[in-house]
Design a protein around this nucleic acid. Structure first.
Lengths: 340, 340
DNA sequence: CTGAAAGCGCTAACAG
DNA sequence: CTGTTAGCGCTTTCAG
């Protein structure tokens, strides 16, 4: 069988531009042009080059290209926790947008750790043309440092002077509060997430403001780890001053809270109505199905990388304000009218 | 503030080996050595170089390095579906192992599409030192082609002549059948997943063999899409010849099946006992909690890249047989004794 | 142990 | 439109 004993290619000895050039009988630079600036080369010649390149199995060496152009055609997406379902769709959206533009996406998981995030970034910055920081746990100034090195865009957070895209949490939490208020719940407990989370701050602040307008009472319990167990643990603290309405930092905590509350003898939604953020996979599968504030996760991811690509392309951001994508309330079984 | 107007670095003008060399007063090659082969340079000099490099903020340009060494220090992991929870922990395990070894991991999502998988691979092969193919949907021969180009290891599948790591599905499905049999279920329906899935074949075959030994009757329904909806749809087909035992290709399908069966008036586990594969996030949260065949997902991921790294390092695989990691049955509420 | 020199494969001027 | 000539930043002989 041919091709089984490729002795002609020792080491990285792949087919190069030179091989193609020799075969076609043109200068290497012409071959290069045929690929990078097709317009600038005789149509016929270009065609011939492409054909021969194909036959020879020529593949441009991206490293060599990167070395001269200072462009790698890669972007990095760093997320706080790959295993968090919120990120799935975001990642997929981002990956799609990147692929479409001919970019390769590098994924780094930081496991909710500031230090790991810096480390990842360190290993990755010089490999990419731009960076998407999703739910970063780093300080604003650390983020600005990164943004100074490479085009950067932050997701789920606003950092002064760094382009960002966020979900409309203020509106979302407001809708959640209205929903609860409309069902007759006058007091709401907020189950807080990680302290380093920007979104957590937004959600809590938004809730306070909405509560003021709607004349509801709010309390805050936490911070806690943004997981099912974290929510479960929070139920205990909630039970010390129970309220009939509960809004949790995310869906996992809401689910955990429901479990914890039930263990404490409180039925959902009969005695407590619960709302979570992020309409993750599973939110509709639990019992009762979870009412959540949903965001267009996929669009969030793709918007982020498209914006990033524009930034890489040299476009300045037209506005310094974060791009905000809308949220909506998905009402399911975990909320019900207040039992008088 | 210093550093705010970095005019000295136009374009990619980062700090290079030359800058460091000049500053320290040695030849560039010495600086290079100080980093790549510390042993081969005077300890003091090396120390001085490192210090200066640090002060200047020198960072080796990975592209340039890759160009000479033909090593990129990147590996790619391509998965059939990022949004499938099974992959979360696998990805994380892989990412950890890669980071530990100083490698950067590239993630490609192929959305269960053969074509997309080839495309991704195409864009990625030349950027990496090795590849992990997880639940690949490509043909064996296509996989072998890839493996010929770069060190490759396949996960959740066995391909002749390509190193692989798989879970012990045969054993897992056997344990599942035993469990069901022990509960008095004499007939089992297998809810099949995607046709292109190697694991699906293994699971079904394993079940058939186990059934033979245990003297159980088995039927197969499918193939179907490996999602909650896919499982839901399968319930209809199951109801045409209902059995009191059901084993689904994965947890999502099992969850969907439970929903579908319930809609058809069959209670779980009272009338049907259901088992799924892959102990994903959420399996314990649904009602009833799902009995599943669990695999050490994280270890699976890390084992895969560690093996890959060894391959890249030039080690031949000692064995041609797949590495198999154990599975175990996690019994929860979706299975119960057969009601006579 | 260290310096000098020669590329890795590609792109980017600059002439023609 | 095409060829020639320099490098990109790094590693790697090869001398010394």
């Amino acid at each position: 069988m041919a091709g089984d004993h490729d002795n002609r290619r020792r080491h990285s000895g792949a087919v190069t531009i030179y091989d193609v050039a020799r075969e076609v009988g043109v200068a290497p630079s012409t071959v290069s042009r045929a690929f990078s600036r097709p317009g600038r080369v005789n149509a016929e010649t270009a065609e011939r080059i492409r054909r021969v390149a194909d036959e020879l199995g020529y593949r441009a060496n991206p490293m060599a290209r990167a070395l001269t152009t200072a462009r790698t055609s890669m972007v990095a997406m760093v997320t706080a926790d790959i295993t968090n379902p919120v990120f799935f769709e975001i990642i997929r959206g981002a990956d799609e947008a990147a692929s479409q533009a001919g970019y390769v996406m590098l994924l780094a998981d930081t496991q909710e750790s500031d230090r790991r995030e810096r480390d990842s970034l360190d290993r990755v910055v010089s490999n990419v043309d731009g960076i998407v920081l999703t739910s970063s746990r780093m300080s604003d100034s650390a983020i600005r440092m990164i943004a100074k090195q490479k085009p950067t865009i932050v997701l789920n957070r606003a950092v002064t002077d760094v382009p960002s895209v966020v979900t409309d949490d203020a509106r979302g939490v407001r809708r959640a509060a209205e929903h609860l208020g409309g069902y007759g719940h006058r007091a709401i407990t907020y189950i807080a997430g990680p302290e380093a989370s920007w979104a957590d701050g937004m959600r809590w602040r938004g809730l306070r403001e909405a509560a003021l307008e709607l004349e509801l009472t709010v309390r805050r319990v936490g911070p806690g780890v943004p997981t099912v167990d974290g929510g479960d643990a929070a139920a205990q603290r909630w039970s010390e001053h129970p309220t009939s309405g509960v809004i949790a930092y995310n869906a996992q905590m809401a689910i955990g809270f429901i479990r914890g509350a039930r263990a404490l003898g409180a039925q959902v939604p009969d005695e407590v109505s619960v709302i979570g953020f992020d309409n993750i996979f599973g939110a509709e599968l639990v019992t009762p199905p979870l009412t959540t504030v949903a965001a267009p996760l996929r669009a969030l991811g793709s918007t982020a990388v498209r914006t990033l690509l524009r930034l890489i392309g040299g476009k300045r951001m037209t506005t310094r304000r974060p791009l905000v994508v809308p949220t909506r309330l998905v009402v399911r079984g975990s909320t019900a009218r207040h039992q008088a």
